[in-house]
Design a protein around this nucleic acid. Structure first.
Lengths: 152, 152
DNA sequence: CGTAAACAGGACCGACGCGGTCCGGTATTG
DNA sequence: CAATACCGGACCGCGTCGGTCCTGTTTACG
């Protein structure tokens, strides 16, 4: 568990595919054929990404979608947030203060927030450009527990 | 989104409460009263944690649950895993090789695995003992993006 | 100017999992 | 033997996810 939705997964597959030819304009049918993801799904996801400003869209015949920014400037965090809302480990992290009845006495909240921030920053540290490399030489995630043993 | 289930959330609240008095034996009704979590829910969660070996249980009158190990030796990762299964960002990370049709051509898998490992290690780096401190002096998560910019 | 291609918006739907409850059984204490 | 408490599992409503479809509207091209 603790996994992201299939929509976000698909979305990242689509974006990665588009990043291979960053200036090209892709139609939904093309992307469906090239990624094997069913067309209606592709269409739905591209619409969301476009609405969220990660893709530019051009209507009409010869229309299609293209990356709104260079792949280096699109983070994994942004894609996930666009497709499944803000990244929040627990309800109390996401909600406005007061949404949790235990808030006053809950010692966990600050911990969750830290974990959440760390996860978010990890995902913000990975760009679409880096995803295009099968075994990226620089993935901004430490490989060992040591990496996380830092004082705040 | 990208959040853990309420069961895991509750479970960690319960465990944290128990860690306050690590050698005490708690009954489900007691814990329900002390945490405001409905009894049937508490009962269900404690059963799971016990089955997974994080709690010891004693039946009969004067029975109850107690921590199976010292709070320093119980990680957040273990609790989450016990309550909502293995930590897996995407299906392809969790499933046996072959479960994803795109596997051969998918360049993303290795990236997901790294992200997953990093997340897992972050959660493994936090112990129940640390959760009992409202603002723990040492939470094993970097506070800045720099922390993650390390070569593997 | 008409037609085809393609995006836009949103309704719609089935299925599954989550959150939550309840019950019958068994072990332990006194 | 009675009370307490864990154990296993059935059960259920409801929301969300995954997925489809339909009705516009915009644009290119002949």
């Amino acid at each position: 568990m603790l996994r992201m939705t299939k929509q976000a997964d698909y979305g990242i597959v689509l974006m990665t595919h588009m990043a291979d030819d960053a200036r090209r304009r892709f139609t939904a049918p093309e992307l469906s054929a090239e990624t094997q993801i069913p067309l209606p799904m592709v269409s739905k996801i591209l619409k969301m990404l476009s609405r969220e400003g990660l893709l530019g869209s051009h209507r009409g015949s010869k229309g299609g979608y293209s990356l709104a920014r260079a792949p280096e400037r699109i983070t994994v965090a942004a894609m996930i947030a666009a497709l499944e809302g803000p990244i929040a480990f627990t309800e109390c992290v996401e909600g406005a203060p007061g949404s949790c009845s235990q808030e006053a006495v809950c010692r966990l909240r600050s911990n969750w927030q830290r974990i959440n921030v760390a996860l978010k920053q990890a995902l913000e540290g990975i760009t679409l450009a880096e995803l295009t490399h099968p075994l990226p030489p620089l993935v901004r995630l430490g490989g060992g527990a040591r990496t996380f043993e830092q004082r705040i």
